Simulated assay, not measured.
Amino acid sequence: MRVLGIETSCDETGVAIYDTAYPGGDGLLADALYSQIAMHTEYGGVVPELASRDHTRKLLPLVEQVLREAPLTRQDLDGIAYTAGPGLVGALMVGAATAHGMARALDIPVLGVHHMEGHLLAPMLESEPPAFPFVALLVSGGHTQLVAVEGIGRYQLLGESVDDAAGEAFDKAAKMLGLPYPGGPHVARLAEQGDPKRFRFPRPMTDRPGLDFSFSGLKTHTLTAIRELEASGTLDEQARADVARAFEEAVADTLVIKCRRALDQTGLKRIVMAGGVSANTRLRERLAVECKKRNARAYYPRGRFCTDNGAMIAYVGAQRLAAGESDAEGQMQATPRWPLDQLSTPDTALSADV
């Protein structure tokens, strides 16, 4: 089954084609991505109206691009999947309308899929995908969640952020430090020059039981440190790097401490980390150390599939369409808020590997 995947949840337009006749990454026939970062950087964050308009301009040319690269024609497609949520409602509507229009013209099924399920299953596109069950840390600009995964559609939310997501915290810390949007990569680069011993920032909510996250206090602590340096006239480039390092260390440690607790709580030995923040080198290093202590293994999607992309949507859509799921005719989905644990379980969902 050849499925076209469309991702337009925020500021990246992603399109891909996945063929279920081939397992894992071999089924990915083509993928393309257009990032709006350059446009939104001027405003210091995503402008929803501009994002929606840019998706409208870029989506169909990207569809034609992946068809050429596959190489296929529209008539060779067996189904279409699109991101139905969560995300910016206007951006979601662009993908939903395009997917439903194409599906109706081609007389093929169409399905709206969950954006975070795409991230969660993105490592399935790799040459050595994780077996079920596993723990997943979904860590991006809009979400920070720990999920126990028994199979496709069988998800138990273990913990999540009660305020800012980790990616949002990186963006806000970057703004405090005078760095461009998006903040994560810029903070990480600046942190490489920082002295890890100069500052130690708090690891929020690690002094109490549970698997929820909070980064608002860390954000306030970072701002206070910067203002104190400004007041003393010592906020030079090295001080900025030291603050960036302390902030990054605090986020990485906090996430890994919660991952350790999740592995202990579930008794599992496999953990998936996905979403834009999962590309952070320091976070991966810390998680690798923790996994080695527990004889566990961490799995990641390749770099270009850490951020939003069409490949993960094509993959999830292909699994669910093959199981017989589809949108009702004319019933486009655009759900800005959509809890992951409300997803259905496909009849042909992979069983847990115990």
Rank of each mutant, 00 (worst) to 15 (best):
95 G>A: 10
116 M>S: 09
141 G>K: 14
145 Q>I: 03
92 L>V: 03
161 S>W: 10
160 E>R: 15
87 G>A: 10
97 A>N: 14
67 L>Q: 07
37 I>V: 06
138 L>M: 07
139 V>L: 06
43 Y>I: 06
79 G>K: 05
54 D>M: 12
145 Q>D: 06
117 E>W: 00
154 R>W: 08
48 P>N: 02
128 E>G: 03
162 V>Y: 07
141 G>N: 15
163 D>S: 13
49 E>T: 04
68 R>L: 08
36 Q>I: 01
85 G>S: 07
110 V>Q: 05
129 P>W: 14
128 E>P: 01
77 L>S: 11
55 H>Y: 07
75 Q>T: 13
149 V>S: 08
40 H>S: 09
39 M>N: 09
98 T>L: 09
94 V>N: 01
38 A>Q: 06
134 F>I: 05
109 P>T: 14
149 V>I: 09
160 E>Y: 10
159 G>F: 04
149 V>M: 08
143 H>T: 11
51 A>F: 02
149 V>W: 05
133 P>K: 01
81 A>H: 04
145 Q>A: 05
131 A>P: 12
129 P>G: 07
109 P>M: 12
60 L>M: 15
75 Q>W: 10
67 L>A: 06
104 R>C: 05
37 I>H: 03
77 L>F: 09
40 H>L: 09
135 V>E: 01
163 D>W: 00
99 A>L: 00
